[in-house]
Amino acid sequence: MLLRIVHRTGYEYAGMASHSFNEARMSPRSTLHQAVLHTKVDISPTAWTNTYTDYWGTTVTQFEVHEPHPRMAVTASATVDVQRPEVTGHGLSWEAVRDPEVFDDLSEYLLTSPMVEPPDELKARVEEIAGRSATPGDCAREVVELIHDEMEYVSGSTGVHTRASEAWANRSGVCQDMSNLTIGCLRAVGIPACYVSGYLLPAREPEIGTPYTGESHAWVRWWDGEWVGMDPTNAIQPGGRHVEVARGREYGDVPPLRGIYTGTKSSSMFVEVELTALRA
């Protein structure tokens, strides 16, 4: 599917910000199954910029504003051709996934942090699932179903600093929480898992040329001899409607926009995402 994405975000300050220093991760990745035909990042007010690729392979736009400004806006636009096939994995055994060489290669995707660690009650359920699953892939798919079935998607119910355990306690959250929670559960039983951020065209059968209001989205990948993706929010495998922007261990590695500013006490963030299918 050929998609156009326009992502507008930024901050409105309570007063005048005198300086701001920021990083944007809003440019889609070029991968084997996703070709970026065009990408552009515009910043207002005019800023000093620098672009680099971070440790995880994500394109990062650094920028600094050194003049008084009541508002800072970033608009990222891209045209992406997504031809993502279904990936089922190699059906690795538990012994193969827990091999010391796998740990050496993928240890960053096996270590837990307070942001993704599941509570003891959930961890026990996942360990029971792992104990009766013939393969790690079977376990991972059942864990995704568990999170999808027992968590309710409630927009605005959590924030970027909400821990996975807190979202589970309330049985509600957004895609970030469900992805962090899934990652923590998989790592708890020795399955390497990765956080992916990007966009999802909300219409399953979109009208060509019609803009749809969307938002940033998140899903996961786990290791099964190859990376297998799954979207726990929707209980589907990422396909032609998913556009990948960034990868990392958890949300903290991939925020679309973050930074610091001086000159005023507070700010509020705004976000708008528009996705258009240009070709099926």
Rank of each mutant, 00 (worst) to 15 (best):
E121I: 14
L37Q: 13
V196T: 04
S44K: 10
G156P: 13
R141T: 10
Y11G: 03
T51S: 07
R141M: 14
H19Y: 10
E145M: 06
E272I: 08
T79E: 15
V116G: 04
S20G: 06
Y251Q: 02
S172L: 13
M26P: 06
D81W: 14
T264W: 05
G156D: 09
T39W: 11
H69C: 12
T88W: 12
C194S: 13
E95S: 13
A130H: 00
T31F: 04
D149E: 14
G89C: 09
N180Y: 01
Q176F: 06
R84V: 06
S267T: 08
T233L: 08
L181K: 03
K40D: 13
W227F: 04
V154G: 03
P256L: 08
L3Y: 01
A124P: 03
A134M: 11
V41E: 06
I43C: 09
R241H: 14
R279W: 05
L200F: 03
D104N: 15
R249F: 05
Y52S: 11
Y199D: 00
V87C: 15
W219V: 10
C175V: 06
T51N: 05
R84H: 15
P68K: 08
R187E: 00
A169C: 01
E152K: 15
S44I: 04
H33P: 05
D253M: 10
A73Q: 12
C194V: 15
S30V: 06
L146Q: 01
V143K: 02
F63T: 11
A193T: 01
A203C: 13
A124I: 07
A280M: 12
W48C: 06
P100C: 05
I183M: 01
D149K: 13
V143F: 07
A78Y: 08
V273I: 11
Y212E: 00
L122F: 04
P119V: 01
V6R: 15
E64Y: 04
P118M: 08
R258L: 11
N180C: 08
H66S: 12
M115I: 12
T210R: 03
R221C: 05
